[in-house]
Design a protein around this nucleic acid. Structure first.
Lengths: 336, 336
DNA sequence: ACGCGTTTTGCAACCGGTTGCAATTCGACA
DNA sequence: TGTCGAATTGCAACCGGTTGCAAAACGCGT
């Protein structure tokens, strides 16, 4: 069905090597043969079979893009940026959905079968061992949105969740709240653990502030709503740092439903700054994750590792910042 | 680096064919050799190179998944279901982001280089010619979320937008609104055109109802908000059918901002039923698109076409239904 | 133990390219 | 026009598998 190298060679009256070389960057072909080949190729509608060539070159230009975050609106943007970023650099994302999977074995095997040049694990909830399994198998890998580590086994790109927790605490302190709380995601998620660490760390220096913690069962609207409803019954804090934006919006919904207002009665600060946070009927004060930078760095890093396989594992963390919107009262004059 | 067939053959003390056959469904191998091969393969950690085998079999099990809807939250669910559905059937999605592209040429060439077995164009905004370019190139293709056609050139799976427009009109009529309007997406989007057609068609039978139309510049929150703000200044209708949910939410935001309430002052009905529509602080009445069914059918159809390439182009439309929530007043007793 | 039909096996060619190497062609200069 | 080094070309082997075909091994009945 498809046109092959050989047919082009025959029509152009040259050897197969000549055709191959015309389509290979930096190979030695005279202008004359190149012209003949290009003419024949054009007439036949030939384009080289990337998979066949990968057999000898060892490069497929395929990158495994693995995620299990198909319910977090932020990740639509993540997929958009990853696919665009990869294709701008001549690479193709092979998408793997890990929603039900926890064992890396299968994914590793599958992606090796397709000889991907590298793998990007884009997930805030998968454990580090997942990415490490690829490294183990000799596949260049970077874990995006992964957990910070001082001695990483694989490349990690993301944000400093501990610093974010601290930042959230400081934002609440600066606004003069005296009873604050962390409403985390699942207790076992490393991102939740780290954010809690930073949050409580910063508040330890303010013993006058009362602080508490609870966990939602997932990073989801429903979980946030359910948890906040419970908290409202039990007597809520003045302000909450929520594990992420969608959780925050669930909490907001519960607060409104209870006839309370935000920030009048309760303050909320989220994390991520996903698209919906800026919607005026949500208007969520939150901490922005620099998604574009994280993705750019992830792509750079995976390409770098493909070129230099035994490059040292690296952690790249990007700074976040508070995006001031309407769910926290203004900074108090004369506060810390 | 990777273990090859030959190494397994050597270690097992059999021919390369024997190894190949062990890993080929339905090939003739004795239990004894199979055992030897499997042992050797296990010890070596061998798994066959899918790309190499595709050279002879002509099948890569790669499916091109093409979209340009990376800003519509509905599509996160779409990608989730497509990737899961494909991998459950042993296929791998090669994701292509067409956000800036309008010319099919590039995508066709690229996906042919990777010898994809088939292509799914998942987009409500790309023109039919896009999918047709693949058909032209001999690649099995289905256009999901595409436009209905009585004599399709390619497989189309989606909803009947004309019927949806009619359904929206009937919903508004049944609720006794007498001044209604369609707030569409971009005027040139086929989905907008079709929905308008159905909407006005149904209202033609109700000359007592006043009806008008306007277009948002995109299917986006901001566009909906901007357009509704304009409409509010000019004197709005009683109820709007909005081109999709995210547009609806933008409109809702503008209405709230103006100090009006919904459905008290103005009614809104959307289309899609994306995840956020059910969030209680949005609570959007809308028309549900059966996304899971559409995707299942799309996958079936692309697989069917791979198996029978000259299968007749087919259009499969799925019925939608109104999901009653809080942005339309209740059905009026005794209304049509 | 023999003959027969069925399975199983290995050989070798092929899938669509790439690439080292030796042979050929080219261009420039004397 | 002859010579020489550099650029270009084709041959053939190879990448990691698959598969048609003929030969070998097997199972079974007598």
């Amino acid at each position: 069905m498809a046109v092959t190298l050989r047919e082009v060679a025959d029509r152009a009256g040259v050897s197969r090597s000549a055709v191959s070389r015309t389509f290979t960057e930096g190979a030695s072909v005279s202008a004359k043969t190149r012209a003949k080949v290009e003419k024949a190729a054009l007439e036949l509608g030939y384009s080289p079979n990337a998979l066949a060539s990968s057999l000898t070159t060892g490069r497929t230009k395929l990158i495994g893009l693995i995620s299990n975050n198909f319910h977090n609106p932020l990740f639509l943007e993540v997929f958009d940026l990853f696919t665009r970023g990869l294709q701008d650099r001549g690479l193709r994302p092979l998408l793997v959905n890990l929603s039900n999977e926890t064992d890396p074995e299968n994914s590793v095997r599958m992606l090796r079968q397709y000889s991907v040049d590298g793998v990007i694990v884009a997930s805030s909830t998968l454990p580090p061992s997942f990415a490490e399994a690829f490294k183990q198998a000799g596949v260049p890998v970077v874990h995006s949105f992964g957990r910070f580590s001082t001695s990483p086994n694989v490349h990690v790109v993301g944000i400093d969740n501990v610093a974010c927790g601290r930042m959230a605490a400081e934002a609440l302190i600066a606004r003069g709240y005296t009873r604050v709380a962390f409403l985390g995601g699942p207790e076992k998620a490393t991102s939740t653990q780290d954010r809690a660490l930073g949050f409580f760390g910063a508040l330890r220096e303010h013993p006058e502030i009362e602080v508490s913690i609870s966990y939602a069962s997932a990073y989801s609207f429903d979980a946030g709503r359910v948890e906040m409803t419970k908290l409202l019954m039990a007597g809520p804090a003045e302000a909450y740092f929520c594990g992420d934006d969608v959780l925050s919006i669930g909490a907001l919904s519960a607060i409104e439903e209870a006839g309370l207002s935000c920030p009048g009665d309760i303050g909320i600060i989220g994390l991520n700054d996903m698209d919906m946070a800026r919607w005026q009927n949500i208007d969520l004060t939150t901490i922005r994750q620099p998604v574009a930078e994280i993705i750019r760095a992830s792509i750079d890093l995976v390409i770098g590792t493909i070129e230099h396989p035994d490059r040292h594992p690296e952690t790249r963390l990007f700074p976040c910042r508070v995006i001031e919107r309407g769910t926290l009262r203004p900074v108090q004059q004369g506060a810390a």
